[in-house]
């Protein structure tokens, strides 16, 4: 089975739709949303509506720190994120808020754990950027494969037979083996706000039969997404960064 993993949508409807079309063409039969549906972008209500609809058709949807902040307020958020979150909060209707409030932190199936950030302590929203972070996450969980987002930067971490932790930066559009019986932690890049220097939307594709995972890059209408951010009078930097993937 092929599973599409979508993280950090951040209210970017154009990027989300491009990824969904792409994933369908790749034969993805299952969708997993790894959190942060809202924040930064100009389409929080439409993106949540789209995801909720897909959940009705069997998609798994998890909570991210921005989804939580949409309910509790931007506690501990930096300037731009906080400003965008106050804007977002003002626009969410009660129904959308109720949906976000129900989202779980994690989901496990077979040998896989899905979560937004460090799987060892999901409510702490720790970033997995370094080998040490990945080791902490893997040590605190039991699933063979962990999939998360949160950093907006694609990465693959693995534990070798000698208990070394390797850190690999996956190239775009290439399926990598998640070799049995080793444990792997895949950080999926962002659909709605990539930060690895590549402005194309990023989602993960897992092939469970072949035990392979790819980080697929999808071009989308950045102009349209940026235009909406500017029209909403959200900070200009949030529009500009989409073109740079930073």
């Amino acid at each position: 089975m092929r599973i599409a993993l979508l993280a950090d949508l951040h209210a970017n409807l154009e990027a989300l739709d491009a990824c969904l079309v792409h994933a369908a063409a790749q034969g993805a039969e299952r969708l997993v949303f790894l959190g942060d549906l809202v924040g930064y972008g100009a389409d929080p209500v439409a993106v949540v509506a789209r995801v909720r609809d897909l959940m009705g058709q069997g998609a798994i949807v998890l909570r991210g720190n921005h989804d939580e902040a949409a309910l509790r307020g931007p506690i501990g958020f930096s300037g731009l994120a906080a400003e965008a979150m106050r804007w977002t909060q003002a626009r969410l209707d009660p129904e959308t808020k109720a949906f976000l409030a129900e989202l779980p932190f994690t989901h496990e199936e077979e040998d896989r754990l899905y979560t937004h950030a460090d799987g060892a302590n999901p409510p702490a929203w720790n970033y997995v950027t370094q080998a040490a972070d990945a080791r902490r996450s893997l040590a605190g969980t039991t699933a063979r494969l962990t999939f998360c987002g949160h950093t907006h930067v694609p990465a693959l971490f693995g534990l070798t037979a000698t208990d070394k932790l390797l850190h690999h930066t996956p190239l775009p559009d290439l399926m990598l083996p998640l070799l049995q019986p080793r444990r792997w932690l895949a950080v999926i890049g962002a659909v709605g706000q990539p930060r690895d220097g590549n402005p194309a939307a990023c989602y993960g594709l897992l092939d469970t039969d072949k035990a392979e995972c790819g980080w697929l890059r999808v071009p989308y209408d950045i102009e349209a997404a940026a235009r909406k951010i500017r029209a909403a009078e959200l900070p200009e930097a949030l529009a500009a960064r989409l073109f740079l993937g930073m």
Partner: peptide
């Protein structure tokens, strides 16, 4: 293009 398991050895 693949993770290098030997790199850490």
């Amino acid at each position: 293009q693949l993770p290098d398991l030997m790199a850490e050895e």
